[in-house]
Design a protein around this nucleic acid. Structure first.
Length: 388
RNA sequence: UGCGACGUCGUUCAACGGCAGGACGACCGGUUGUUACCCGGUAGACGCUGGUUCGAUCCCAGCCGUCGCAG
């Protein structure tokens, strides 16, 4: 099948009930995804809350910033506190206090990014050592489906194999093969009531492998599809070229999820290529190491030049950090390792990407996305990668 | 005032009669399905004055300073 051809006949049924495209502008789409805990307007940035918390923030704060859905992680929640505990407390929503939609990652990314902990890998599953206590553990598609069923998330991700970009071709081929094998099994596993399930494609930026993965994964009855294994060390242009042809290769009637992108430019570029959902630790992680995402670019608040800067992190921003705190104060908090510094930067950075994404949606609805993107990239002091 | 100990990057510790090293801090990068983690880079010191020696941060003397004990 040629790149760009719509796949996923088998999944059209699910599309009708859970997802609709509200507007398109070029390849960019504005849509609505219906979940058991509310609707998600796309494009949507999903803050990462690995351990059932967006680090340092109260769920109401996250909601107030405009987040519609957050991530949780099956790997981490399986080991701490255990899906049995979460289930007994009423599921991840009741447990965490976040009442909106939750997407849980399968833990595949954790297992395969912590490569040193892998003991053995076979068609059945993967055996590895837990990062918490070194104990042997084993993930299979059935196991991660069960963990996510008991967590009670709204969207469950498949167990996949995510490799670094520089892994040998033979490993990428094997990753594609096993990811499909596991997806076929996970697609048949029990799930929580109303829980959606997303398939994940692999294959890096290799046209042949990615195309094969698209064919195989999109033939399965999932409620949405993801591009996995990107933004893992490959060149940015190469990644965007891949998204450009691979995103339209995902079923048009279902949500398209780019796993792991969250820098402002990256967000604009994948949305422009037809991506509906994306998550990333970047806004919150860089916040905790003292960086702010702004229209001036990324600022390192530890820099001495902010020592007595009375201005807000980003001019015109209305987030809880910018509304009353100076760069000088936040720099002081950050250099002195005060918790409030991490919180304020986390609030600001999430606000920045959530607001950027919301504006992108509004532009798509108005049919002005192309101009919006050009303007935003220019403001971010970036030259658009290409005209299209 | 006497006796003693000690003076090495901003701080805290090393080493050594022949290129003075680390940690933390500072300064600057990085971070893309998350440890407040972590990674990379840069700058930065032998208290002062003499003496011994081919050569002294090191040995000796004096001075200055710090700390302890005594008064």
């Amino acid at each position: 099948m040629a790149p760009g051809t719509d796949r996923g006949q088998a999944t059209r049924r699910a599309a009708a009930v859970s997802f609709r495209v509200d507007a398109t502008d070029g390849a960019a789409r504005a849509g609505t995804l219906v979940t058991a805990h509310g609707e998600i307007q796309t494009p949507a940035f999903m803050p990462v809350g690995t351990k059932a918390t967006v680090k340092s923030l109260h769920p109401d704060e996250v909601r107030a910033l405009g987040a519609q859905v957050i991530l949780g992680n099956a790997y981490h929640l399986h080991f701490r506190p255990g899906e049995d505990v979460v289930e007994s407390l009423g599921g991840i929503h009741a447990f965490s206090g976040w009442r909106g939609p939750v997407l849980t990652d399968s833990g595949g990314y954790q297992v395969f990014s912590l490569r040193d902990t892998i003991r053995s890998l076979d068609d059945e599953g993967v055996t590895f050592r837990s990062v918490y206590d070194g104990a042997d553990a084993r993930f299979t598609p059935e196991e991660v489906a069960e963990i996510q069923r008991r967590l009670g998330s709204d969207i469950a991700m498949c167990l996949d194999i995510c490799l670094p970009a520089d892994a040998p071709g033979s490993e990428h081929e094997s990753a594609v093969r096993l990811t499909t094998l596991w997806a076929e099994r996970q697609a048949r596993a029990p799930r929580a009531p109303g829980q959606l399930r997303f398939g994940i494609t692999q294959g890096g930026t290799d046209v042949e492998l990615r195309s094969r993965s698209l064919d195989e994964i999109c033939a399965l009855p999932f409620d949405g599809f993801a591009l996995g294994g990107l933004a893992v060390g490959e060149h940015k242009l190469e990644m965007l070229d891949c998204v450009e042809w691979a995103a339209p290769g995902l079923p048009a009637g279902l949500p398209r999820y780019f796993m792991g992108i969250g820098d402002p430019v990256g967000i604009l570029e994948v949305v422009a290529r037809g991506i509906d959902m994306f998550d990333c630790v970047l806004p919150t992680r860089t916040a905790r190491t003292g960086s702010a995402l702004t229209w001036e670019g990324r600022l390192n608040l530890r820099n001495a030049r902010f020592r007595a800067d009375a201005g807000p992190l980003d001019e015109g921003c209305v987030c809880p950090a910018c509304e009353r705190f100076s760069r000088a104060y936040i720099r002081h908090l950050v250099t002195q390792d005060e918790i409030l510094g991490l919180r304020l930067l986390s609030l600001h950075n999430l606000s920045f990407v959530l607001d950027l994404t919301a504006r992108a949606r509004a532009a798509i609805e108005r049919g002005t996305f192309s101009a919006f993107r050009q303007d935003a990239l220019a403001r971010l002091a970036c030259v658009p990668e290409e005209e299209s």
